[in-house]
C-alpha cells in the first residue's frame, strides 16, 4: 500500500498533495498497490472527502496536535504505516516534509528518497531523479529497500486532474495514539506579503538590487506579481538589505523553485541565486546591464530600466 501524507488548506487538498496523488497513482499501477491517504488537523474531514475521489481509502483525524511537523505527526504516520502495512509513504518536500520524512524513514528503518522530481519502479525497487550541487546536476538514485519514504519536490510533477476515478470511499477515523511532545509550539506567524505560496506558484516574479530600494520593490515587483497571479521572490542581496523577508528568498540559502515562468526583475544572476531558479521552464530577465549573467540563462531578455518596463508590462497585462 502506498500512503500519501496529505496536506490541506481550508478543507481542500493542496496543489502539492495533488502532485503526490499523481505520483502515487502511477506507482500504484506499476507496483499493483492500493493508494491511500491520511489527512490531519482541523478541516481534515472535508479534505478527506475530496481525496476519496482519487484514493482507495482515506484516513483522517482533526486532532490539532497533528497539525504541525513535530513528533505527534511523525508518530501518527509511523503508527498508521505500520498498522496498514504501507511500503511507501509520500510527502511534499516542503518544510513539513523536510522535517518529517527523514524521521519517518529512520523510525521505520526504510530508505529516504528526498526531494525527487520524478520516480518510477525499477525491478523490485525504485529509481528517482533529483537535483544536486545547487541544482546544477541531475542525480539518479535507486533503492531496493522494502520500505521507503519519498519526498517530492513541490511543482516538479503535474497535479492529478480534477476528477478522480477511484470512486468514493468513506473516510475512516484512524485511532491514533496521542503522543507527548517535549516541544512547545506557540506564536505562529503567517508570513506577510505574497498571496501565492512561493513553492506552489506556477509563476514567480522576483526582484533584485536593480529595483533600487524597498519602495522600488513594492511598487514594481509586487504589482507585476499581482497582475500575473504570481508568487513573489527576492535575491539574497535584497533580503540582506532588509527590503524583503527571508521567506521570499530564492537561491542556495532560500527556496528552490521551478515554476512555469520565472520573471527576474533587476537580478544580475549570481550562482547562488541561479541555483534556486535555473530549473524554471521559461525565464524572463529584465536588467539594465546587458552583461549580467542572468541573460545567459534567460529565454526572453529585456535590457533596460525596470522602473520603465515593469509599469508598461502591468498595463498590457491589465488590458487582457
Amino acid at each position: 500500500m502506498i500512503l500519501i501524507a496529505a496536506e490541506h488548506s481550508d478543507g481542500k487538498p493542496t496543489k502539492g498533495t495533488l502532485e503526490l496523488v499523481s505520483v502515487a497513482r502511477q506507482l500504484g499501477e506499476s507496483r499493483g498497490q492500493q493508494v491511500k491517504a491520511v489527512v490531519t488537523g482541523p478541516g481534515a474531514e472535508a479534505a478527506a472527502g475530496r481525496l476519496a475521489d482519487w484514493c482507495d481509502e482515506v484516513y483522517w483525524t482533526a486532532s490539532e496536535a497533528l497539525d504541525g511537523a513535530g513528533e505527534p505527526l511523525v508518530s501518527a504516520l509511523a503508527q498508521l504505516a505500520h498498522e496498514q502495512d504501507a511500503s511507501l509513504i509520500l510527502m511534499s518536500c516542503n518544510r513539513r516534509g523536510q522535517a518529517v520524512a527523514p524521521r519517518l524513514a529512520v523510525r521505520l528503518k526504510g530508505a529516504l528518497l528526498e526531494d525527487v522530481t520524478a520516480i518510477e519502479t525499477a525491478g523490485d525497487g525504485l529509481r528517482a531523479r533529483r537535483f544536486t550541487y545547487l541544482a546544477r546536476v541531475t542525480e539518479t538514485v535507486e533503492t531496493d529497500a522494502d520500505f521507503a519514504v519519498i519526498s517530492v519536490k513541490p511543482g516538479a510533477v503535474d497535479p492529478a486532474p480534477e476528477s478522480g476515478s477511484a470512486g468514493t470511499v468513506t473516510p475512516v477515523i484512524a485511532e491514533l495514539a496521542e503522543t507527548d511532545e517535549r516541544v512547545t509550539r506557540s506564536d505562529a506567524q503567517v508570513a506577510a506579503g505574497g498571496k501565492v505560496a512561493l513553492g506552489e506558484a506556477d509563476i514567480v516574479v522576483a526582484g533584485g538590487r536593480g529595483v533600487g530600494s524597498a519602495e522600488g520593490f513594492a511598487s514594481l515587483v509586487e504589482p507585476l506579481a499581482a497582475a500575473m497571479g504570481a508568487g513573489v521572490g527576492a535575491t539574497r542581496a535584497v533580503v540582506d538589505a532588509g527590503w524583503r523577508p527571508f521567506a521570499e528568498q530564492v537561491g542556495q540559502t532560500g527556496a528552490t523553485v521551478s515554476p512555469k515562468l520565472y520573471v527576474a526583475v533587476g537580478i544580475s544572476g549570481a550562482v547562488q541565486h541561479l541555483s534556486g531558479m535555473n530549473r524554471s521552464r521559461v525565464i524572463v530577465a529584465i536588467n539594465r546591464d546587458s552583461d549580467a549573467p542572468i541573460f545567459r540563462i534567460c529565454d526572453y531578455g529585456v535590457v533596460g530600466d525596470a522602473s520603465q518596463i515593469v509599469p508598461e508590462l502591468i498595463k498590457v497585462l491589465q488590458e487582457g
Partner: peptide
C-alpha cells in the same frame, strides 16, 4: 521557519 511563516519553539 514553517511552511506558513514562523513559530516559536
Amino acid at each position: 521557519d514553517t511552511d506558513q511563516g514562523t513559530e516559536r519553539l
